Amino acid sequence: MKKILIAFGTRPEAIKMAPLYNSFRLEKELFETKLCITSQHKEMLTQVLSFFQIKPDYDLDVMQPNQNLFSLTANILNKIKNVFEDFKPDYVFVHGDTTTSMAVALGAFYAGIKICHIEAGLRTYNKLSPFPEEINRQLTGRIADFHFAPTEQAKQNLLSEHINSNNIIVTGNTVIDALLESKKILNNVYTNSEIQFLDSLLTPNKKIILVTGHRRENQGDGFIHICEALKKIANLPDVEIVYPVHLNPNVKDIVYQKLNNIENIHLISPLSYPAFIWLMQKSYIILTDSGGIQEEAPSLGKPVLVMRNTTERPEAVKAGTVIMVGTDTHKIFSTAQSLLYNSSSYSQMSTAINPYGDGFACKRIISFMKNLDHYEKDNQVSSIL
Results as ranks from 00 to 15, higher is better:
6 I>C: 11
8 F>Y: 15
18 A>Y: 06
30 L>I: 02
31 F>W: 06
37 I>D: 04
38 T>Y: 02
38 T>N: 04
38 T>M: 06
42 K>N: 13
45 L>T: 07
48 V>C: 10
55 K>T: 15
63 M>F: 05
65 P>A: 08
67 Q>A: 09
72 L>N: 09
75 N>A: 11
77 L>P: 03
81 K>T: 14
84 F>G: 05
93 F>I: 13
96 G>A: 10
100 T>L: 04
110 Y>F: 15
113 I>D: 06
125 Y>K: 12
130 P>L: 01
132 P>H: 04
136 N>I: 01
137 R>I: 00
148 F>W: 06
148 F>I: 09
158 L>I: 07
159 L>N: 06
160 S>T: 08
160 S>C: 08
173 N>S: 13
179 L>C: 07
183 K>S: 08
183 K>R: 15
185 I>W: 00
189 V>F: 02
191 T>E: 14
193 S>Y: 01
194 E>M: 08
198 L>N: 10
200 S>I: 00
201 L>V: 05
220 G>M: 06
220 G>C: 09
227 C>V: 03
231 K>D: 00
231 K>V: 05
231 K>L: 10
243 Y>A: 07
249 P>A: 13
250 N>F: 02
250 N>V: 02
252 K>M: 02
256 Y>M: 13
259 L>V: 05
264 N>R: 14
266 H>S: 14
266 H>I: 08
267 L>Y: 09
270 P>G: 11
272 S>K: 14
276 F>Y: 13
278 W>H: 14
279 L>W: 07
281 Q>S: 01
283 S>E: 04
286 I>W: 01
290 S>G: 15
291 G>C: 11
294 Q>I: 11
294 Q>L: 11
297 A>M: 02
307 M>E: 02
309 N>I: 00
309 N>G: 08
309 N>R: 10
311 T>M: 07
313 R>Y: 03
317 V>N: 08
321 T>D: 07
325 V>S: 05
327 T>H: 02
328 D>L: 10
334 S>W: 00
340 L>K: 14
344 S>A: 11
345 S>M: 01
346 Y>M: 12
347 S>V: 00
350 S>V: 01
353 I>H: 12
353 I>E: 12
357 G>W: 04
358 D>A: 11
364 R>E: 03
370 K>W: 04
